[in-house]
Simulated assay, not measured.
Amino acid sequence: MNSIILMAEIIEDPQLRYTSDSQLALTEMLVQFPGLRDVDPPSTLRVIAWGNFAQEVHEKYHHGDQIIIEGRLGMNMIERKEGFKEKRAELTAQRIYPVQMELKTQSQPSDTATTPNKVVP
Rank of each mutant, 00 (worst) to 15 (best):
Y61Q: 06
I69Y: 02
R37M: 12
P98Q: 02
G64R: 00
N76P: 04
I67T: 07
E102T: 09
Y18C: 04
R80D: 04
K118I: 08
G83A: 05
S110Y: 14
G71T: 05
M77I: 13
S20P: 09
T115W: 07
D13N: 15
K87H: 12
P42C: 10
T115V: 14
K87E: 13
R95S: 03
I78E: 11
P41I: 01
E28F: 05
P116G: 07
D65S: 07
K60D: 06
S22Y: 09
T44I: 01
Q94W: 09
M77L: 10
R80W: 04
R46F: 08
Q66C: 00
S43H: 07
A8E: 08
E12H: 03
E82D: 12
T27N: 04
Q32F: 00
N52Q: 12
P116R: 09
S110V: 13
Q55M: 12
T92K: 08
R17G: 07
I68Y: 09
Y61N: 06
Q108T: 15
E56M: 09
Y18E: 02
N76D: 13
Q32C: 02
G74Q: 14
K104S: 04
G64A: 02
G71W: 01
L36P: 02
Q66F: 04
S22P: 05
D21T: 08
W50H: 03
V120P: 06
P42Y: 07
I4E: 14
I48V: 14
Q94V: 09
G51L: 05
M1W: 13
D21N: 13
M7T: 15
P98L: 02
T114Q: 15
K85M: 10
E59L: 10
A49S: 11
Y18T: 06
R37N: 15
F33V: 02
E56F: 12
R95H: 13
Q100I: 10
